[in-house]
């Protein structure tokens, strides 16, 4: 059952992503991308990341995509002519994307067992169990503290400094966006 839902959502994600890349108008592209993001949110739920799924819907499919839509409406692009590049670029895109896909297709074979075996072979990691117990501990933590508590504890303890640095990044982005978009400061 879980796998059937996963494959349905995965097919939805791939189809909407392809339509997003190929659709003529930017507005349609953004709306198809929202479809991709909603499918991915469903997949996150299947992968036991419920809080990430909620944030994906609220922040990504909601806020960021609305920002895109605002800018598209502000620009008032009326042209309906296709902006696909010429045949040489199409060939380049097919070659680059094909090579990348062949390279990444090896990931299909990955399973937890194979990952454990490869980690065991790498010289830095002496004991694969030392990694995978961490996942087990996190799982127990999720069971003990609930979905949000399991994410919040490492975010505000182990990753506290990166979390605070993120606020500097956001401040810089706010100032930069205002400076760039304002006609006269």
């Amino acid at each position: 059952m879980t796998e059937a839902v996963f494959y349905f959502l995965g097919a939805c994600a791939i189809v909407t992503a392809a339509l997003c890349v190929l659709s003529r108008s930017p507005m349609a592209a953004v709306l198809w991308l929202v479809g991709t993001m909603l499918s991915l949110a469903g997949i996150y739920v299947l992968l036991n990341a419920e809080f990430v799924a909620a944030i994906q819907v609220l922040v990504y499919a909601g806020a960021v995509m609305v920002l895109f839509l605002f800018v598209i409406m502000l620009l008032n692009l009326g042209s309906a002519k296709s902006d696909l590049r010429g045949p040489s670029s199409v060939a380049a895109a097919v070659v680059i994307a094909g090579l990348l896909l062949v390279e990444l297709a090896a990931l299909w074979n990955y399973s937890p067992e194979r990952l454990a075996a490869e980690v065991a072979q790498s010289p830095a990691m002496s004991d694969p169990a030392s990694i995978f117990t961490a996942g087990e501990l996190a799982r127990q933590e999720t069971a003990a503290r609930g979905v949000i508590g399991g994410v919040a504890a490492p975010l505000f303890q182990t990753y506290l400094v990166p979390f605070e640095i993120t606020s500097i990044l956001l401040l810089a982005a706010i100032v930069g966006a205002v400076v760039l978009a304002k006609r006269r400061i």
Binding site: A97, L100, Y110
Partner: peptide, 19 residues
């Protein structure tokens, strides 16, 4: 068990983005 298919799906989506 969904690990492999998830990684493959992300590969396809990334490739579509690059294209």
């Amino acid at each position: 068990a969904l690990l492999g298919p998830s990684l493959a799906l992300s590969a396809v989506l990334f490739t579509l983005g690059v294209a």
